[in-house]
Amino acid sequence: MAARLRSMLQSLRSFRFASALPQRYLGRHCTGRQWRSAFPDATKADIRQFLLGFVTAFGFLDDEKLKFGPGDPLRQIYRDLYPSRCMPDGLEFETLAADLRTKHGIALGDLLSDTLTLGELFGHVQRSRA
């Protein structure tokens, strides 16, 4: 039952927020070089898989994954998506946390801060694979 509810919420979130990329990211070019520079030992596939999990959790389109760079703070992306604290969210952090726990054994709650960047989170994912 919980899995079905989660799936329904993901579908609704994807419908509601697909293409709702925050303004600051709309004009960005591919950040692939930034990722490869920051993580020279990571494969392109590893980076893209990580970013796919992130954009899926946040309800962005798959082809928008490389609009996000390693220096982007997670909380800033969230605040750009929900500028008003009165807006109900789509459980983005909860979805991302469940994905990280299932795939990598990482507890996002232990890492999450106002300054945690996508690159720092990817670093934790990379270390979990070692």
Score class of each variant (00 low, 15 high):
Q23M: 08
A2E: 07
F58A: 08
L96R: 07
G71L: 13
L81I: 07
S84Y: 02
L121A: 05
V125E: 13
F60G: 09
Y82E: 15
A20V: 06
S7Q: 11
S113N: 12
G109A: 03
A18T: 05
D63E: 08
L81Y: 03
G105N: 12
T31W: 04
F68I: 11
S84K: 02
P22W: 04
R48H: 08
L100R: 02
H29E: 11
G90E: 13
A98F: 05
A107E: 15
E120A: 13
G53K: 06
E64W: 10
A130D: 14
L81P: 00
L26C: 13
L91D: 03
S84F: 07
S19Q: 14
F68A: 01
D114H: 08
D110M: 00
L116D: 12
G119R: 08
G123S: 15
R127M: 02
G109Q: 10
L5T: 01
Y25M: 04
A18N: 05
F58N: 05
R28D: 03
S7E: 12
A3M: 01
R33D: 07
P40W: 12
T102C: 05
Q76A: 03
F68R: 03
F39N: 01
S128G: 04
R85M: 13
L5K: 03
L52W: 14
D62E: 14
Y78G: 13
E94F: 05
L121N: 00
H124D: 05
D72Y: 08
L118Y: 09
A42D: 10
L121R: 06
T115W: 06
A3T: 11
T95D: 10
I77W: 07
A107P: 08
R28C: 07
L9Q: 02
A42I: 13
L74S: 06
D110I: 00
H124M: 04
Q49C: 04
R79Q: 15
D46K: 03
G90T: 02
R36N: 04
H104P: 00
L26I: 09
R129P: 00
S19V: 09
R79N: 14
T115K: 10
